[in-house]
Write a protein that binds this DNA or RNA. Structure first.
Lengths: 307, 307
DNA sequence: CGTATGCTTGAACGTTATCAATACTGGTGG
DNA sequence: CCACCAGTATTGATAACGTTCAAGCATACG
């Protein structure tokens, strides 16, 4: 890359990370400073169906209004409160463990750009988005930012090595989260072997995802990074039962850049070239239509000449 | 960065990744091809003390001959066979679980550059190095390589998301490994809650390490990467009771480069400049003396002007 | 309809890769 | 013991990819 893939740094001058709206203050004091903290409107153990499975064919959910609409009315499912269908932890749990888990469950809502927790905060919960998207990021003193992951419907995040979060969690879109208090969860684990295995499985899946991300960051070119990103978003959408073709990209260019280790400009330029080359279409902000999935995939794997 | 941080690629021409000795064949066929596979000299449930805790003050163990020498002769410790002292999983386990775990344990030895398992292989064991070092890497079709981690005495690796390894494991130095068969381990877990918690804890620790690595790869400059690498090696050495100051760097420049997302040349140049600036000393191959730990650490965090 | 915010596009620059020798290091055989 | 050799590390010159700086453009919003 160029000279300043990271020249944002040094004495805090310059552009810093791609600052997101009111994050200027937060940029100065990355560790549990608390300014701009979210207001955390939350509801305890809601029993009404909160959000339906994604309506395919719908428009971008980029900054869409909070979701609404009832899910399919199947026979009573204790997992229904969080509206996650089969994606959540609840799934595949024996009845006893499932009920115990659901007893712990609580719902949280955040608006876009609100902070859920900050690097250095005590880790108190595990979270699963029910609707919307969350990003996790680490920040350097001078404001350089690296997004470590995006989390969508059914993903699990909030894992902490010690008792403290290693990254900051912020809402990309308005988001609704299913959360489980760690203390009570841990107390439950000895009596819930299936659940514990499930949590471990999730952690291992995240490890595998990190392996890919490390390869991407360390060894892929900008076009390959973007291609990988789109392919990954598409695959993940498919895994949760959404269509793969119109890839919904709810995050802005700044977030994409900070996830891929690039700058906004490079992301923009690269997507433009993808469009010119007939790889993708960009009908509206937040939506990418994949026109040549095979070539995009080959590009992502480094087996295609970019131009 | 420059133009070709990743231009090694494309049509397999050019330099590929930094090829390690006889890995040419393996480079062509990254997935379970099996050529150049290790011979895996292993011993089942050895009862003789195999290797002592690291003797501080000793010379580089870079490509040192296999270790020898008895550990402290404490009252009989069932964990002694693997010689890991308090670092292993055994530690902190109730007696019953510990014995059960040790019954599964087996020892494996590899020479430097031998492959333990390959990306795509079925995941059959969890491993802990007792002496020596292992690297894990992913490879792209055209030979670009990204090392995802180095594992030393007491570290745990071999986690797989599905039933298959996501990376290749290769010995950096002659290495002795304590290994546990996954199938029997899983069968044991329901009766060994402490053990399961311990495995989860290890996986979470690895997640935290990945977060740091992602920040490093995505947002740090070459000098910052090198500084972070040295600091990390020093800290990890200290955590396992070894001295931090003469940092032992058993891997070659190619491995360092493929870990940090750089080239051999940049690694070499950067270390040379560190030496010229009085940050470090390079007395012998495989040994780095930290002369200004504070500045090195600040550099690693991006809070120091490189030059 | 004007102002904010984010996205796109252009030109110049810089860090890091590439290409190419040269020097070193450890092991082996004369 | 030393010359040799293969692998490895260092150093130099050049160039490229991606960044930085700087406008211009679109989309949303009051």
């Amino acid at each position: 890359m160029g000279p300043g893939q990271r020249s944002v740094r040094r004495s805090g001058r310059g552009r810093r990370a791609h600052l997101v709206r009111r994050s200027a203050a937060a940029a100065q004091t990355p560790l549990h400073p608390g300014p701009g903290r979210a207001k955390l409107t939350w509801i305890n153990r809601i029993m009404i169906p909160l959000s339906p499975p994604p309506d395919p064919g719908g428009a971008a959910m980029a900054s869409a209004p909070p979701p609404a609409g009832p899910p399919d009315n199947a026979p009573f499912d204790p997992c229904q409160p969080c509206g996650l269908g089969g994606l959540a932890l609840c799934r595949d749990l024996p009845e006893r463990e499932r009920l115990a888990l659901i007893a712990l469950q609580t719902t949280v809502r955040l608006d876009a750009h609100e902070t859920l927790f900050t690097e250095g905060d005590r880790a108190l919960y595990l979270y699963t988005p029910v609707a919307g998207a969350i990003k996790l990021y680490k920040m350097m003193q001078d404001g350089r930012r690296q997004i470590t992951g995006f989390f969508f419907r059914g993903d699990l995040f909030g894992f902490a090595a010690g008792s403290v979060h290693g990254a900051t969690a912020e809402a990309v879109t308005p988001v609704e989260l299913c959360r489980f208090p760690l203390a009570r969860l841990e107390a439950l684990l000895p009596q819930a072997p299936t659940l514990e295995r499930l949590v471990l499985r999730r952690a291992l899946a995240r490890l595998a995802r990190y392996e890919d991300q490390v390869l991407l960051l360390g060894r892929k070119s900008a076009p390959e990074k973007l291609a990988s990103f789109l392919v990954s978003l598409a695959e993940r959408a498919q895994e949760r039962g959404e269509p793969a073709s119109p890839v919904l990209v709810p995050m802005g260019r700044a977030d994409v850049a900070d996830y891929l280790g690039l700058t906004i400009e490079t992301v923009s330029r690269t997507l433009t070239r993808f469009r010119q080359d007939g790889l993708i279409g960009l009908p509206r902000s937040g939506t990418v239509v994949v026109l040549d999935a095979a070539r995009l995939r080959r590009l992502a794997e480094g087996a295609e000449i970019p131009r």
